[in-house]
Nucleic acid binder design. Structure first.
Lengths: 342, 342
DNA sequence: ATGAAAGCGCTAACAA
DNA sequence: TTGTTAGCGCTTTCAT
């Protein structure tokens, strides 16, 4: 195994000082064309590349972004992570992953691990913030962006779908579809996404003079969602909902399966189902799920640009709560109002 | 934003030398209980944590593992990554992600980026190796493990399912099920997984005196797989396969949808479908796909232990090709032989 | 434009 | 067991 090539060795081969080599690899440094050429050639010959870690030490910028994510089973996240990582890569950053859920316990511990790596920024996906975390980052001077969560807490930038508006849209769609007994399967109640979707959904129901027919909690988990579906639907037809809004697709798919295969209900004839996210399987013909799409491309784009702003202008940037509008994708799992204009 | 706390500041507060502080945070270093206590207290008070990057510079161990992955849409990968990351975290390592496919082009470029971070090891998932990459890592002295790929190339450790045996199992199962016209939808032909699965499948077919009825390439992509399904099945009943083995579940699910919804075929009455991987949707009642399970837990475990072995005994470890047996998970998408013993 | 020199925060000999 | 010292590979003043 060959020894690692350092800038000093390149300098010697090129017949220049070590700092000259450094300058050549530092965008915007002042080097003559002649020196640059000599160094480039020597570097090429030796296969030299700057050591990112050494650079990080002295410059204080590691070009590492810490990403905290809880569970990858919900397809929304892998898809988003792929985009996020790609986008960050294009900006010269890389993503260091931290799994939050089953590991060492709480977010606070994970955060310390992240900070140990001198990351330039943090993205928290599907994770609830503690004010503790926020102040710790503030104190460390590390910008943080919440992805697909928002927080009442001030001073934290977050990027999410406009969940309240999304919830409203679903309710209005279901009401326009002529449904009378409309129910809701909630996600984990600690999540802002869950709360906002439900709040918007209920508000629009109320505005139209409707009551929520029934409600159960699915906790964003497949199995819990299946139980929730049975709880709501395993009863005489008269008591059964004729429509259900499920707080995300991951649960909605499981709910559909219970309804169709365990309870022998027809979708959408007996019951309409609407989800939230528009993950890939929602579009598969076996589900054909009407759902409120989260625009993950735009969410990622906003996340990256907010993060880079914070990194590049540590002072000038004010935290923002970015809410992105999501369209309702009308498919076949819910009765569609006549003449509904998608 | 408070200044970053260094070991020197802790040392001053504790009234000891800076190296004493270092020792307290270095497992297995020799420090007296008294010193340890003083340092712990001071560190606690200041909120000190060692800078991983500085440690990496001098020790040569970054505790970062580079993970190269191509596409996260196939659920097998996110699920595996979650496990991999968790397992590595438990061993004090963290995962730096590099998306391979759509980014800066080829693996060789990505590899250089990885090496820039002085990673302690590399895991390549769903990526074909070039001998270039192998020798570059060898030269840099960085251990590398191929996950879910194996390579003819010597000197590279790989962890994968026994794809050949898996292919055989599927063929034997289909033959036992009384099928006569057995077809195959191939994955990307550059992948060892694809090649081995097909080779095993064909070999078992041949051993039983069967010919492959027809074959199309799905490239491991949903859309291409749909086209492959139409190519194989959109024809008179007499020419149509009565069974198809699809090289992975991601494609198999798409194939099932085409068969059922576009071509109005009944599964398994008209055609049996078998996949490979056992991703979560394969178990959903809407698909109920018979498939050869990849034991991702075991694969991850083997990957991590092989990697750590290579890291800890740079010399003593010989590269191995680890092939893990995968069980056939019998569900409802294929006719099951009478008295079949799962 | 260039080189010399001073560190970034830490670990690892080396003495004591 | 402890402190002193010398770097790890790089960027960045500061002179020149």
């Amino acid at each position: 195994m060959a020894d690692k090539i350092t800038s000093l060795q390149v300098a010697e081969l090129a017949g220049v000082s070590q700092s000259a080599v450094s300058r050549v690899f530092t965008p915007g440094a002042s080097v003559s064309a002649k020196t640059r050429e000599k160094v480039r050639k020597a570097a090429e010959e030796l296969g030299y590349r700057p050591n990112v870690l050494a650079r990080a030490m002295v410059s204080g910028k590691s070009r590492i972004i810490g990403l905290v994510v809880a569970y990858l089973e919900n397809q929304f996240y892998p898809v988003a992570i792929e985009k996020l990582s790609n986008s960050l890569q294009e900006h010269g950053y890389h993503v260091l992953i931290f799994m939050a859920a089953q590991t060492s316990g709480n977010i606070d511990d994970v955060l310390e691990e992240i900070l140990d790596y001198q990351v330039d920024g943090i993205v928290m996906a599907s994770v609830a913030m503690s004010s503790n975390v926020a102040s710790r980052c503030q104190q460390a001077g590390i910008p943080i962006v919440l992805f697909n969560r928002s927080q009442d807490m001030d001073g934290i930038t977050s990027v999410a779908t406009d969940n309240y508006a999304g919830g409203r849209k679903v309710a209005e769609f279901l009401i326009a579809g002529g449904h009378k007994k409309i129910s809701y399967v909630a996600g984990w109640e600690g999540a802002s996404t869950q709360r906002d979707r439900e709040a918007g959904f209920r508000a629009a129901l109320q505005d139209a003079g409707h009551d929520l027919h029934s409600r159960a909690v699915g906790d964003f988990h497949t199995e819990t969602a299946r139980e929730a579906a049975r709880e709501l639907f395993d009863k005489p037809a008269a008591d059964r909902p004729d429509a259900v809004f499920v707080a995300n697709d991951h649960m909605a798919l499981a709910v559909m399966d219970v309804l169709r295969f365990d309870l022998n209900l027809k979708i959408p004839e007996d019951v309409s189902v609407v989800g939230f996210d528009d993950v890939p399987p929602a579009g598969w013909p076996a589900y054909d799920l009407t759902t409120l799409r989260q625009r993950s491309n735009m969410m990622v784009q906003e996340t990256v640009s907010a993060l880079l702003d914070h990194i590049n202008q540590p002072a000038a940037v004010v935290p923002r709560k970015i809410a992105i509008d999501g369209p309702l994708v009308v498919r076949g799992s819910a009765k569609t109002p006549e003449g509904y204009d998608q």
